[in-house]
Design a protein around this nucleic acid. Structure first.
Lengths: 236, 236
DNA sequence: ATGTATATACTTGTCGACAAGTATACAAGA
DNA sequence: TCTTGTATACTTGTCGACAAGTATATACAT
């Protein structure tokens, strides 16, 4: 806990959004202590606003509150990340299957092409823009759900995907492995456009494996950001 | 808002759990007004406890808070229910696929048989016990995820499944259509044990369709419990 | 009878103060 | 030096009071 520069934060909702964003984007790192007092001083508001935000962040699994001891940004639970990747693979495989089964392509080719193009420009060159790439990546996968008529499901799963984003921000810091991911996007797109559900399923499975790999090996990582025990849930 | 009989509720967590349970189990119906004042009088606690619980329930989509006007139990969003059923189908199809692909049966036959047996006893006879059947149904589907090594994912999706449960409690009030569901469970079990992923996928798809049907046609329902507009999210 | 302005009884939003539990610094004794 | 007990400075948990917005009932003028 340190620097804060906010001037006139008002509603409790804004405080919650701000904390959520700062945790997701690693301005507050996993394990960091968050002080209610410091925060309500920074936001120039009562402790209740911060407490309410804390309560919600705790509910989402982003904050651990130890009564009378302190509150800390949750460490990243790799088992949970794996679960959510499994979830995404399952949902997007089903979405692709639905797209192929039920609808005609429509503007799907253009949409996917646009997202892929955006990924390329964001990751190309020395001045690569990772946040932009991530957004384009999210867009690509979002298009698949949207075209399967499940745009609202994508929004519903936002809470889970927050964990994915935080993990991604922590582990993927270089564009070196991104070209491979983009190639896989293109292969998935081709399989979808050729209406080959089985192939798309295999490619999606491989894609999520690659994603997991890309995020886990790039650099000797600081293990203090992760829970060690496989069995998530119980931290003392 | 009416009758309350609680005597010595203490922690805010308990209040939250209690409200969550009462909303899920329809003690508070969709659309019911919940008064902070009445509740904190009933729980004999400060309004902050109730407010904090409200904040979390709102975050989960179970409560709508209109500033300075009142708070109301969320209506059921059928589009959202459809989304979550789609989600469950996707996840369980993937789980079954993983079970067939990776592991040997182990005690899976006995577990599934036990859950199915429990469903039969719970739904048989005139004194059918619907809550017991629902628990056994949950158990059946939970076993699939557990045996795919995704028990923690099942827990993670609990927040979404709450909506499913509330909807189920509202719409399924008779055991008439349950035998068909149990038969489908048996068919799914057989497909899994015969390691036929394609068949299991088809059966799961059909099963969730049946579930949707079973819940939607049984009786002329009171539409005041549902959001009308397809586009969820924006209620004035 | 009807439309309008005002008073009033609600609702949720925010705040400050105090209670209670925990960990640490520090002094006193062995 | 080491152990131990106490004071203290934190932390989160809970409460009562007030501010502010909304809807309704009521009195008044037309």
């Amino acid at each position: 806990m340190n620097r804060l520069q906010e001037t006139t934060m008002i509603t409790g909702e804004e405080i919650y959004r701000d904390l959520l964003k700062k945790i997701t984007e690693l301005e507050y790192m996993p394990g960091d202590a968050l002080s209610e007092n410091e925060l309500c001083a920074a936001y120039k508001c009562s402790r209740h606003m911060v407490r309410d935000a804390f309560s919600r962040l705790k509910e989402k699994g982003l904050l651990e509150v130890y009564p009378h001891r302190g509150s800390y940004v949750s460490l990243i639970d790799l088992k949970q990340i794996e679960d959510i990747l499994f979830l995404r693979e399952a949902v997007e495989t089903a979405a692709v299957s639905a797209i192929i089964r039920e609808t005609d392509p429509g503007d799907l080719p253009e949409l996917l092409a646009g997202a892929i193009e955006e990924q390329k420009t964001a990751s190309a060159g020395a001045e690569a823009d990772l946040p932009a790439y991530f957004r384009a990546d999210d867009r690509f996968h979002g298009i698949l759900l949207e075209k399967a008529g499940r745009a609202s499901l994508y929004r519903l799963l936002e809470d889970e995907y927050i964990h994915l984003r935080r993990w991604r921000n922590l582990e993927i810091r270089t564009t070196r492995r991104i070209p491979a991911l983009i190639q896989e996007h293109e292969a998935i797109r081709d399989a979808v456009l050729h209406r080959d559900a089985a192939e798309a399923s295999v490619l999606l499975h491989r894609h999520f494996d690659t994603l997991k790999f890309a995020a886990s090996v790039d650099e000797g990582r600081d293990n203090s950001y992760f829970y060690k025990n496989q069995t998530e849930g119980e931290r003392k």
